[in-house]
């Protein structure tokens, strides 16, 4: 399969993915949907780019914070009149 990640730049005599490519494919990376070669290139970039490592960490953390914040929200209790309306609707 032809790699979907194409943009490479030279650094220190070696070719690396750009930040744009890495950040663009974060979702596929986290879902383990990259081809092995794509994943290797992805991780080679991370090894030399603390900024993208920070982006990846905060991207992941944002998902975790969203889940945590929603899970901790109080569960609303349906008002008695709403329960009655629902039960009444059953008979219609």
């Amino acid at each position: 399969m032809r790699s979907r990640i194409g943009k490479l730049v030279e650094s220190g005599g070696e070719l690396y993915l750009t930040c744009e490519e890495v950040i663009g494919f974060l979702l596929e990376y986290l879902d383990h949907e990259l081809e092995p070669e794509e994943e290797r290139n992805f991780e080679r970039h991370l090894a030399i780019c603390p900024s993208c490592v920070a982006y990846l960490a905060t991207y992941r953390e944002s998902i975790r914070l969203a889940r945590g914040a929603e899970a901790a929200a109080p569960v609303p209790e349906p008002a008695p009149e709403l329960v009655r309306a629902i039960l009444a609707a059953r008979g219609r």
């Binding site: 730049v9 930040c19 744009e20 950040i23 993208c52 920070a54 982006y55 905060t58 992941r60 914070l65």
Partner: peptide, 18 residues
């Protein structure tokens, strides 16, 4: 991103303490 694909800012890790 810049034309060469580098990010225009350097991202910082704020996950410790979250």
């Amino acid at each position: 991103f810049h034309e060469d694909g580098h990010s225009t800012v350097s991202f910082r890790d704020w996950t410790p303490g979250a």
